[in-house]
Design a protein around this nucleic acid. Structure first.
Length: 220
DNA sequence: AAAGCGGGGAG
DNA sequence: CTCCCAGCTTT
């Protein structure tokens, strides 16, 4: 089995049961990804279902007020995300066409490289890696990348590497599989290499240096 | 390249 | 207490 087969096989058996995984409605997926920016999954779960129940469609959001959107966001933090979501809904409501490619999505305020890749791969099967801190951690350990790849330029290089090994038929599932691996087994601390599906060719596991990755530049 | 933006959880 | 988490925008 190649890298992708191992990941996809593991994911099909071990994926977490999360509410936004029951749909490929692009607006719902976008809401989940906006909520998940720098926010833990367990925290988002409480808000996501509540939000889409109150605002199930783009129309409902667009016809609401910013104040009411913010009310649903209360406690989640990073409140500009809610404002960006509201502005996005109003724009799309007028255009009546949901942006279905990475290069279209990333033009909207609040949608960066990660979120554009997540939505376009999950909802529209675009072959583009979604790189969040889980993905950075997994691949910096797997490849043994000896420098800080959290910066934008280096993420472009990482993206090219991932594109070569990702599942081309189910890029959205592949992206989520890597993130799940980073969230459940390849965690920051207390990682569980013994049950990892890709531990055979993992650089840091084979060299016993998992705790040294990912590399971080010292700040301040 | 670095600050600012939130709140919560783990150690 | 510090660091981190399904990041992005602005300076």
């Amino acid at each position: 089995m190649n890298f992708s087969n191992k990941i996809m096989n593991w994911y099909s058996k071990n994926k977490r049961n999360l509410p936004w995984r029951k749909t490929i409605n692009p607006f719902h997926i976008l809401i989940s990804e906006l909520m998940l920016q720098q926010t833990r999954v367990s925290h988002v779960v409480k808000y996501y279902s509540n939000f889409i129940q109150k605002f199930p469609t783009i129309e409902k959001v667009a016809e609401s007020s910013e104040k009411n959107i913010l009310k649903e966001w209360k406690g989640l933090g990073y409140y500009f995300r809610a404002k960006n979501l509201y502005n996005f809904a109003k724009l799309i409501y007028k255009k009546k066409f949901f942006p279905d490619r990475y290069h279209k999505l990333i033009k909207f305020k609040g949608i960066g490289p990660y979120t554009a890749a997540a939505v376009s791969s999950i909802c529209f099967s675009e072959i583009v890696p979604a790189i969040d801190c889980n993905v950075v951690r997994v691949f910096s350990r797997y490849f043994g990348i000896h420098y800080d790849i959290s910066k934008s330029l280096d993420r472009t290089n990482l993206s090219i590497m991932i594109k070569k090994i990702m599942d081309v038929k189910y890029p959205g599932l592949f992206n989520q599989a890597i993130m799940d691996l980073g969230a459940t087994l390849c965690t920051f601390k207390k990682y569980q290499c013994f049950s990892c599906p890709i531990n055979d060719f993992c650089f840091s596991k084979n060299n016993n240096v998992v705790d040294q990755f990912p590399k971080k530049n010292k700040k301040k």
